[in-house]
Nucleic acid binder design. Structure first.
Length: 683
DNA sequence: CTAGGGTTAG
């Protein structure tokens, strides 16, 4: 600006409101007019033609090498970007490597390279290249950092983006607003994204950086995707108060927040507000409105709006159809969903798989397994593109029709496409192997899932049923009072109810445990039990009892003791009794007293029969006499006493231990104590 | 002629 004003008397163009680009243009014009002897020579022809030749070459590395002495770093950057823009990912990396070998890289090279690695879905390589940068100022260069973080976020690697960001900060990065909005955009699809976003925003503010319009847009999107509707409204208002005019991004995110709860009234008011502010709803805005109608079950309006979208040319991809079909099938109108799906296909709208996966799942959920499978096959015949969701959906439908060949085909595809299985994949397979009664295979799958770091649940992924009027007749449990978690346990299943949904979690792992027990794999039972115990989720009380029963029957008493030690209070007296009896007879003798203490700690009163068995064990092993004496002493302190036959047995054998006097004393103390304490505990 | 941020579907 100052430079420009040296050449020109300030024209009205150069007021602060004048766009920067115009200023630059004026400045450039001024330079050519007022300073025709501009010192900068144009790029020498050899360099320009070398760049052109390398760009056009089928083997850019060979071409680069030919012009090695002519080209400069910025020329190489042009070539690098050209490879990226033409999507030649292989050449891109080769060119970059060539540049690295000759130390012809600068911050721009790294920024561009990371950007294209993001586009080519290769975040692993970006991380690798970034961490190999030796030059510290380069590693904390804000544009290099932003582009590598953006590459991670774009590819769903949210956790690694936050981790890397922390490292960058430790190394001295000064983040800018772009850094924050890059990270914030990762929060949109993150489980605890809202909390994380607030922390980032606080941090940003503490660095003296201000919220801008885009960051507000991101924040609204985070609210919408996490169902923080009131917060979204508050931020929308706050940004207006701070002088940022909401644009279509802000409006559609707020509308999206309304769509989650199908808040039709608020959505209509917002559309009014948008029109009165002079904005015209675009394709995304109208598609989001369709979502409001569709989720709200207002299908007449939804269909009208879809027709409008079609007329405006806004329904060329499958998205709006998906929204309507999804709303229909989740609202119980599966046939109408099918009709819409067929109409979409007849109109020649191409599906990337979303519409197929909605229909395949819906038919599966509705019990139309054959029809569901046919659709999966139809998709397979017409499409090569699979992602994890589509693979899981197909896998599920093939499993439920026991089409083993197709199941294997899906698993092979997953392998070939380098797509890692997730919780849903594992659950589907475990259930399938269970239904096929190949329990050891189910176990192997559970083990595999655990080693791959997936959270193991007692219950499989839920199926969801959307509640609508009249449904309580068919689901009497909806009329029952809910416990504090809105949970019901009925038979083997867990039912969770929220505002609109009934989630049915079918038990899975405990079923596998029981079946493994029956099939003679008790160690595997204990292994599954431990995986469940150490998963972060709470497990159902009865799980401990089930595991204990299996372990006791299989005489794995040391493992059974581990179950009892931490969970005795959740186990029924009869199971404890069975365990205790077995343990006294054949458990590790050195653990007998510990077992007694654990049982007593749970509040369960140990029977005289159990003590009798323990004492018989000790009498047969005189070298454990100190343990026997400890037990007798401890019993006295807890108000326990032995029955008369055990008493006689002890007195008869007391000289074996050389403790005749002591034993008699303790037994008499016990009798006195049990007369006062013991009575209170009698059942 | 460096790079980088926000909206809709399973």
């Amino acid at each position: 600006m100052l430079a420009a004003s040296r050449f020109l008397s300030p024209p009205p163009l150069l007021t602060p409101s004048c766009p920067r680009r115009t200023v630059l243009f004026v400045r450039a014009a001024a330079q050519t007019l007022e300073a025709p002897e501009a010192p900068k020579p144009p790029r020498p022809a050899p360099r320009r033609s070398a760049v052109a030749e390398v760009k056009a070459s089928p083997d850019p590395v060979a071409a680069l090498t030919r012009f090695e002495d002519v080209l400069q770093t910025k020329d190489c950057n042009i070539i690098l970007r050209h490879c990226g823009d033409t999507r030649r990912w292989d050449d891109l990396s080769k060119v970059f490597q060539w540049m690295q070998e000759r130390e012809m890289t600068n911050a721009a090279s790294y920024s561009s390279y990371f950007k294209y690695l993001g586009l080519s879905r290769d975040p692993a390589r970006a991380l690798q290249v970034y961490s190999a940068i030796q030059d510290r100022p380069m590693r904390v260069h804000v544009s290099v950092c932003n582009s590598v973080l953006g590459c991670l976020v774009k590819n769903g690697r949210f956790d690694s983006s936050f981790k890397l960001y922390d490292e960058m900060i430790r190394e001295g990065l000064s983040p800018d607003p772009f850094t924050y909005s890059t990270l914030l955009s990762g929060c949109i699809k993150l489980k605890q994204g809202y909390t994380k976003a607030l922390a980032l925003i606080n941090e940003m503010k503490s660095r003296g950086l201000q919220m801008d319009s885009v960051i507000y847009g991101t924040l609204l999107a985070i609210c919408a995707s996490h169902n923080y509707c009131q917060e979204a409204e508050a931020y929308f208002q706050k940004m207006k108060d701070e002088g940022h005019n909401p644009n279509l991004f802000h409006y559609s995110s707020l509308l999206n927040a309304y769509s989650e709860n199908a808040d039709y009234g608020k959505a209509e008011l917002l559309m009014k507000d948008l029109r009165s502010s002079g904005l015209t709803p675009n394709k995304v805005m109208l598609t989001t409105l369709l979502k409001v109608y569709s989720k709200g079950g207002i299908f007449e309006k939804a269909k009208e709006l879809l027709a409008e979208l079609e007329a405006s040319g806004f329904a060329q991809d499958e998205m709006p159809y998906c929204i309507l079909i999804d709303g229909l099938v989740k609202g119980g109108k599966i046939q109408e969903g099918k009709t819409q799906f067929n109409e979409m296909k007849e109109k020649g709208v191409k599906s990337d798989g979303y519409a197929f996966s909605i229909m395949i799942s819906a038919l599966h959920r509705g019990g139309h397994h054959e029809e569901s499978k046919q659709l999966a096959k139809e998709f397979e015949a017409e499409n090569a593109s699979y992602d994890l969701v589509m693979l899981n959906t197909s896998l599920r439908t093939y499993c439920s029709t026991d089409d083993m060949e197709s199941v294997m085909r899906m698993l092979k595809k997953m392998d070939e496409l380098n797509i890692s299985p997730d919780n849903i994949t594992f659950n589907t397979l475990i259930r399938y192997f269970c239904d096929a009664k190949v329990y050891h295979l189910a176990y192997k799958t559970i083990e595999d899932m655990h080693t791959k770091g997936h959270q193991l649940n007692e219950y499989s992924e839920p199926s969801r049923i959307v509640l609508h009027y009249g449904m309580s007749e068919h689901f009497p449990l909806l009329n029952e009072p809910l416990n504090q978690n809105n949970q019901h346990f009925i038979a083997e299943n867990l039912y969770v109810v929220d505002k609109k949904n009934l989630y049915v979690f079918q038990e899975l792992c405990s079923h596998v445990m029981v079946q493994l027990g029956k099939a003679g794999f008790p160690s595997e039972v204990f292994s599954v039990y431990n995986m469940l115990r150490y998963s972060k989720r709470t497990v159902r009380k009865s799980l401990h009892e089930k595991a204990l029963g299996i372990l006791v029957s299989a005489e794995l008493l040391k493992d059974a003791y581990i179950v009892v030690k931490d969970n005795a209070e959740l186990i029924s007296p009869s199971s404890l009794e069975k365990f205790a009896r077995s343990f006294m007879v054949s458990g590790n003798i050195n653990l007998i007293n510990d077992v007694m203490k654990a049982l007593n700690r749970s509040g369960w009163r140990i029977s005289q029969d159990i003590f009798g068995r323990a004492i018989q064990r000790y009498i047969r092993k005189p070298d454990k006499k100190h343990l026997l004496m400890c037990l007798l002493d401890w019993m006295t302190g807890q108000g326990y006493s032995v029955d008369s036959s055990t008493r006689n047995l002890l007195l008869k054998n007391a000289q074996l231990f050389g403790q005749k006097q002591l034993v008699a004393e303790i037994l008499s103390k016990q009798q006195t104590a049990s007369r006062t304490i013991g009575q209170r505990h009698k059942k």
